[in-house]
Write a protein that binds this DNA or RNA. Structure first.
Ligand code: ZN
Ligand code: ZN
Ligand code: ZN
Ligand code: ZN
Lengths: 131, 131
DNA sequence: CAAAAAACTGTAATGCTATAACATCAAGAA
DNA sequence: TTCTTGATGTTATAGCATTACAGTTTTTTG
């Protein structure tokens, strides 16, 4: 579960909170949970989050302004992942679809667009909340 | 260019600013431009944006916290659209890919996830900024 | 038409999200 | 060791979005 390079104290604190959480958390929610361990300012959380994102072990959900621990083993290799976010229970499913990636890549080649990062976020209602 | 139901004064002001803009605009940037026409508070802009989004003539770019006028003719029919956002010149290309939609829909059927709204945002460098 | 419902407006205050600027410290490479 | 890189701590500030309340206009409908 832990990434290759040893995490610093702050990075580890933030990472653990995200791994334990069952829903995505905002930076300020994380801050609330790490205050008791000595972190006092938002910037300390954001810096840890930046590092964790660059390691591929945390993802930012753009449509929520929130963060989740990666649910997959191979996101370090910068795949294209998608998120299905339940608006009722806030559960997030992370998945990757090679076909979707191929079709988007195809569009980018045609448009001569050089992609850095792709966010795919589906908002809706999960199976458990539908029944 | 104008949507079916007649827009109110505030909605029309906000919509015109977005249509004229060549880049996505934040709500506060829009506010700056409509102050001279009597709009004074952020909430007035957000309310107009909400309506314009529900009409399908404006889209929110989640990864920028910003808004763009729709570049297509048929977004009222709630298609799945994607955005390629240039991080250098901020130009946005809106496109729709039926195959991407088909594959994501397929995943959702398998997961029994009921989608409301899908955001696909590709950040990178456009053709003009690469050369 | 008149009453009721729905949609839109205005304003102030507040809350949430993110970064700038500056000083300091710790670890690893040359 | 000296230099460089990355991490830390703190304060202040910038940027994005909503709550709450009051009033008005427009549309529906009996
Ligand atoms: Zn992942
Ligand atoms: Zn759910
Ligand atoms: Zn559109
Ligand atoms: Zn560009």
């Amino acid at each position: 579960m832990s990434p290759q390079p040893r995490l610093t104290k702050n990075q580890d604190l933030v990472f653990r909170v995200l791994v334990d959480a069952e829903t995505p958390l905002s930076a300020y929610m994380i801050l609330d949970q790490v205050r008791e361990f000595g972190i006092r300012a938002p910037l300390q959380v954001y810096r840890a989050l930046d590092k964790l994102q660059s390691l591929g072990v945390v993802h930012r959900l753009e449509s929520l302004n929130a963060f989740v621990a990666c649910a997959r083993a191979d996101c370090q290799r910068h795949e294209m992942v998608a998120f299905a976010i339940c608006d009722k229970c806030r559960h997030v499913s992370e998945f990757s679809d090679a076909q979707v990636k191929a079709y988007l890549d195809n569009w980018m080649v045609g448009a001569q667009f050089l992609a850095n990062q792709t966010a795919i976020e589906i908002r809706g209602t999960c199976r458990a909340c539908t029944r």
